[in-house]
Write a protein that binds this DNA or RNA. Structure first.
Lengths: 342, 342
DNA sequence: CTGAAAGCGCTAACAT
DNA sequence: ATGTTAGCGCTTTCAG
């Protein structure tokens, strides 16, 4: 292993001088710097993050608190991998690397916060973790700069897609097509994702904005954010007295199940029932019919989270909640209700 | 920050003794250990990975070389997030944490290998990276223990799903249903994924196993592993002279495009054409009709990669290629060809 | 079983 | 502009 002492010996300068040259400090001669850099390169010098971290107490590490599968999807949730990736790219270009914070280290029990301290992470990104989890809260309530994506923590800045506004628009979009009987298949109403209740809230607001009544029989809460739950929710909805002519579904994955249920119920989409959804997942354009849905800008969420993180790292203030706009992608799952021409 | 010296002072023991107690070493008295551990807990002591790493030259860090989007999928590839997650869980339970290896650190150029050295990673998992990438090769050819998932590097152990065997079975499955005109929509034939050419190879072997001829007009190479390319490939296939009665498609995502193309071509599945695919992605069961496909065990791939990594970390030898079995999931996209009853 | 001494590679604070 | 000194928190000898 090549150290700065090796470089010092060869160049004839002292270790601190070498250090200064390597770190591009100001108080050093131009020629000296060049000489040192040249030798460093020749020797294939690579700094040692441990030594650096030990003295500076900075790690240039961003901790990632992320647990797959909390949403009950059962397999994988593509949304998050894109968010994390966008965040990663932005942070790396600023010289930070991402480390997953583990919940336990080997046999020894070590909390998330302890882990953060152990690795001396400069900041933490929290993605898709239960907001009630105590270990997570210990981190978000600590003095470590934290940003959250998707889940709302009151004490730290959170980046999510806009939920309420598009939900209102979904209802209004269906209204404009002529629908008056509009149901909502909502996501889980728990602390995990704001998406669940915010979209429900938006649905209600949308109804009110068009003087439509809010009816309990038109609202089904899905147990999980997955296709099976969507299927069940639709079946449940159809067992009730009044039938809607259109459905706002809280997510594309759930919509897949809803559409299958429609198929099994002998309901044609969009002739018998219109469906509008949320996410624009990979398969939304490949479903039958292609799904009209709000596209979440996963890239933008990750990028914005990185932006806020950098601000925080520089000791600046950040807004407590940032909303990323979504975009309505009109495909073929919505049409005027039977017998109506708009 | 609480250090071992704080503990030493309070307990009256020396720093090395405290260190030994904390690290559960043998040459220390039981009572001493208990006393030290108790005080450590009271003070909320957390070790410092930098100090530890500096002296031990071990980081308990596993580097992750992973780049999203190399397969031209354009959005996200759920396969990898599951693999990484399973790998992560296994490694964490052994006391390792995962760190993403960046390609450049801030303004300063730093290669992947340099990064590995900088962080002193104990091992590296390579996922879904171009096998021809020089920086990656520098890592795989270094003395750092490396495992690859999905992409085959000759110099290190690689874990992938079985490809050839199931491809053979796919053809035989269709043959058994009565099909004799079986096409293959193959994945890209580049160095990125063995999956592309191995499945093609298996397709050919399957044909030969049933004395069926290998016809160029029944083989279309898709440009990317995505839906659009699948769509194009199917359109291309249907422009040719002879029409197959069944298609083995190299991946579910491509199959979505293929199915859409069938729809646009007025081809009913499975009445007019049977489709068998590979992956069993989230939406395979929600497509119309539900897709018959080989399920990849992403969890098992990640777990096995972790297993090999642990072996490597212990200085043991590992096989150069490990194949994870896949499972045929029969759904409704395959049927006997027109006019045939089996 | 415990402790004294030394050092891992680097940088901060000073002096020159 | 450069060097001296010291020390970050920990573990590894090795002596007792």
């Amino acid at each position: 292993m090549v150290t700065i002492y090796d470089i010092a010996k060869i160049t004839g300068y002292s270790a601190p001088t070498v250090s200064k040259a390597l770190n591009n400090q100001s108080d050093i001669g131009q020629k000296t710097k060049e000489k040192i850099l040249k030798v460093a390169k020749e020797l294939g010098y690579v700094p040692n993050s441990s030594a650096k971290g030990l003295v500076t107490k900075k790690s240039r590490l961003i901790g990632l608190i992320y647990e797959e599968d909390d949403m009950g999807i059962g397999i994988e949730h593509p949304l998050f991998s894109t968010i994390i990736n966008a965040f990663k790219q932005e942070m790396e270009s600023e010289g930070y690397e991402l480390i997953f914070i583990a919940r336990n280290l080997g046999g020894k029990r070590m909390s998330l916060l302890e882990h953060c301290r152990y690795r001396q992470v400069d900041g933490v990104l929290v993605v898709n973790v239960d907001a009630k989890d105590e270990e997570v809260r210990d981190v978000t309530n600590s003095n470590i700069p934290c940003i959250s994506s998707n889940i709302v923590f009151p004490e730290i800045a959170t980046v999510t897609s806009e939920n309420i506004k598009p939900a209102v628009e979904a209802v209004q979009y269906l209204y404009k097509l002529g629908h008056r009987l509009i149901a909502h298949i909502a996501g889980p109403q728990d602390s995990i994702a704001a998406a669940g209740y915010e979209r429900l809230e938006g649905y209600k607001a949308g109804l009110l904005s068009r003087q439509l009544p809010i009816r309990d029989e038109f609202i089904v809460i899905s147990e999980y954010w997955n296709g099976e739950s969507g299927y069940k929710a639709m079946m449940d909805l159809w067992r009730r007295n009044e039938k809607p002519t259109a459905i706002f579904c809280a997510s594309d994955i759930m919509a897949m199940g809803v559409m299958n249920a429609c198929h099994d119920l002998g309901l044609r989409i969009p002739e018998d029932i219109s469906i509008i959804s949320f996410d624009d997942n990979l398969w939304a354009s490949f479903s039958h019919p292609p799904l009209t849905t709000f596209r979440q800008d996963r890239q933008a969420i990750g990028k914005k989270a990185a932006e806020l993180m950098k601000l925080l790292l520089n000791g600046e203030k950040v807004p407590s909640r940032v909303l990323i706009p979504v975009q309505l992608i009109e495909r073929d799952s919505c049409a005027p209700p039977h017998g109506v021409r708009t």
